[in-house]
Simulated assay, not measured.
Amino acid sequence: MPHGKAPWTRTRTDARKPVTIVLFHSAYGLRPAVYAAADRLREAGHEVRVPDLYDGRTAETVEDGLAIRDEIGRDELLRRAVLAAAPYSERGLVYAGFSFGGSVAQNLALGDERARGLLLLHGTSDMTDDAATGIPVQLHVAEPDPFETEDWLNAWYLRMRKAGADVEIHRYHGAGHLYTDPGLPDYDAQAAKRTWAVALDFLRDL
């Protein structure tokens, strides 16, 4: 079973209403695994939007993906993400993302007072000390993860709690960084299966 879950939990309600999710791709770009994840979420009854922050470009290696990310630039990528989410923000969005996409999702969620939740798969982002939010947050991450080190995650968790977020962390020992993508060497079928089971339950509770 995943371990490292925070000791405090959200109160489960009987309401099971679908949510609108904006799902951001990783540094690899809009790979088939992202579309498959969106379909999985739609099958659970949710509306899902999948922005393409790279304008159709994808990468075969993480190095190439990071090069595309850096070429476009952080400010431009965030601008594209905000524009993609804006038409749906009045509904109260759930922001979600893979790795780099998780950092994008976190930035948007913390800046959106209507946000309903934040689902992070393999990635987080830094945050300011004055950040404030009351949203539920769920993170799924490999253990160990070279991009999400133990010290970083501890600091991230404490900052999220200080901001007022209700945080769960689920760790998967021995999995690769992007372990939910069947097309990458990081893929771990069992960890991915457990991740989606827990994530779908999280979304049902929002």
Rank of each mutant, 00 (worst) to 15 (best):
D14M: 13
Q190H: 15
S99V: 01
K17H: 05
Y88E: 14
L30R: 08
F202S: 02
T58I: 02
A189I: 00
T149S: 14
E60L: 01
M160E: 12
G123A: 07
G123V: 01
K193V: 02
L206C: 06
R42C: 06
D52P: 03
L118A: 10
V19D: 06
A192N: 02
E90D: 12
T11S: 12
A165M: 08
L83V: 09
D151N: 14
Y54D: 03
V22D: 08
A199G: 12
R116I: 00
L121P: 08
A199W: 05
V62Y: 06
P182L: 05
R79F: 08
I68W: 08
A36M: 04
D186W: 06
G134H: 04
L108P: 12
E143G: 02
V198C: 02
V22A: 02
L120Y: 06
R194E: 14
G29E: 04
H173P: 10
I68S: 04
G65R: 05
G92F: 04
T61G: 04
A109S: 06
R57G: 01
V137G: 09
E90W: 01
L139Q: 13
A175M: 11
I72K: 06
K5I: 11
E47T: 13
V198Y: 12
F100D: 10
A6L: 09
E60V: 00
R79E: 15
E47W: 01
K5M: 14
P7D: 09
F98P: 04
T9P: 04
R16C: 11
T124C: 15
A132N: 07
L110C: 07
L121G: 06
E143H: 13
I68P: 11
P2V: 02
H170F: 15
V48N: 03
G4A: 08
D145W: 13
R204L: 03
D166W: 11
P51W: 00
R204E: 10
A15V: 05
G164K: 09
V62H: 04
Y54R: 01
Y179F: 15
A86F: 08
S26M: 02
D129Q: 08
G73D: 00
Y88K: 03
P185Y: 04
D129P: 04
R171M: 13
L30C: 03
E113I: 10
E43L: 03
L121N: 07
D205P: 00
A175R: 03
L23E: 05
L93H: 09
D52C: 01
D201W: 07
T61Y: 01
T11E: 13
H177F: 10
R80L: 08
L78E: 13
D130Q: 09
